[in-house]
């Protein structure tokens, strides 16, 4: 019986279920249907619609008009497309390694058994709880060239600090600096990962005479690598979509130096009434994100999966 079923190819799942199982299946689907319907109506449909709009001239209020690939060819000719892509990649390429490294260092420090450990963990995590808008306003003041504490501190050291957010050459580093304040989120994930490293491995390393660096390099890092991969992927996705803090801190200026992809997309969609163009931008961003993530997975040989070995 079993053998013949296999030979018949893919069996109809429903047919081989008992009445009860079938009833449970429908009941289960009925219970999750609000989410399934919501997913289809509010996610799948808009995503597919935006793909269609990306091939049209669409100003939101009148009917879309099919123009083929013109939005995509226009993108290539648009100097701001290249500029915003560069700004976004700059923030990702410099910002992500810094944030991954810093949150790992903080997590390892906070993993030490010290007095007031709970307090320290809370303090370092706290900025992640601050609403993005409030944090952005705070940093705008913090980095104020003339009145901000950062430049005041630099002046005490005899340095006339840069214009930070007001200077096209410093605005992107300033945004990265401000974003590092919010590493608490990935820090917590690292902390959880660190606590999952079996103590036995450290004991074995000690017996083999491993130094602190060797324990970190050959035990902690490999055991933590899946968490690093996770934080890296989340970092890529969030920094490609960066919007709120930049919208508030610089609005894209000065001189387009912080005009990131998502901000330019938003302007096209809701201020310039170029929804078709904005849809094309969104799909290009999706493609770029997908390529980046595939690249990360392809080169993820450094990740050690305990369960697999």
């Amino acid at each position: 019986m079993r053998g013949s079923r296999h030979r018949a190819g893919r069996p109809n799942v429903l047919r081989h279920m008992t009445r009860r199982q079938r009833r449970d299946l429908w009941l289960g689907l009925a219970f999750v249907s609000p989410w399934l319907i919501g997913f289809v109506v509010f996610t799948v449909y808009p995503v597919l619609a935006s793909l269609y709009f990306s091939f049209t001239d669409y100003n939101v209020v009148s009917a879309p008009r099919w123009i083929g690939t013109r939005n995509y060819t226009d993108l290539i000719r648009d100097p701001l497309f290249g500029k915003t892509l560069y700004n976004t990649l700059y923030l990702a390429a410099i910002g992500i390694p810094f944030s991954l490294g810093l949150s790992l260092v903080i997590a390892m420090l906070l993993n030490n058994k010290v007095r007031l450990q709970g307090l320290f963990r809370t303090v370092y995590f706290l900025p992640s709880v601050v609403p993005a808008v409030a944090a952005a306003l705070l940093w705008r003041w913090f980095l104020n060239p003339d009145y901000g504490p950062v430049n005041e501190f630099l002046w005490q050291l005899g340095i006339n600090g840069p214009g930070w957010l007001a200077d096209p050459a410093w605005s992107k580093p300033a945004l990265i600096l401000a974003s590092l304040w919010g590493v608490g989120g990935s820090m917590v994930i690292y902390l959880a990962g660190l606590q999952n490293v079996p103590v036995a491995l450290y004991e074995a390393a000690d017996l083999d005479g491993a130094s602190r660096w060797q324990r970190f390099r050959f035990v902690t890092l490999p055991m933590l690598s899946p968490v690093i991969l996770f934080n890296l992927i989340m970092g890529i996705i969030t920094s490609f979509q960066a919007f709120t803090n930049i919208y508030i801190m610089t609005g894209g200026g000065p001189s387009n130096s912080t005009l990131v992809y998502a901000l330019y997309l938003y302007q096209n969609a809701f201020q310039f009434f170029r929804m078709g163009y904005a849809s094309a931008m969104a799909w290009v961003l999706l493609a770029i994100t997908a390529v980046a993530l595939v690249g990360v997975f392809r080169t993820s040989g450094w990740v050690y999966y305990e369960a697999r070995s």
Partner: peptide, 20 residues
């Protein structure tokens, strides 16, 4: 004009280019 804010933005872009 139907182009709305796009014209103002292009004027700002022109100014930014001139400023730089």
């Amino acid at each position: 004009l139907p182009v709305g804010l796009y014209l103002s933005d292009q004027l700002n872009q022109a100014l930014a280019a001139v400023q730089d």
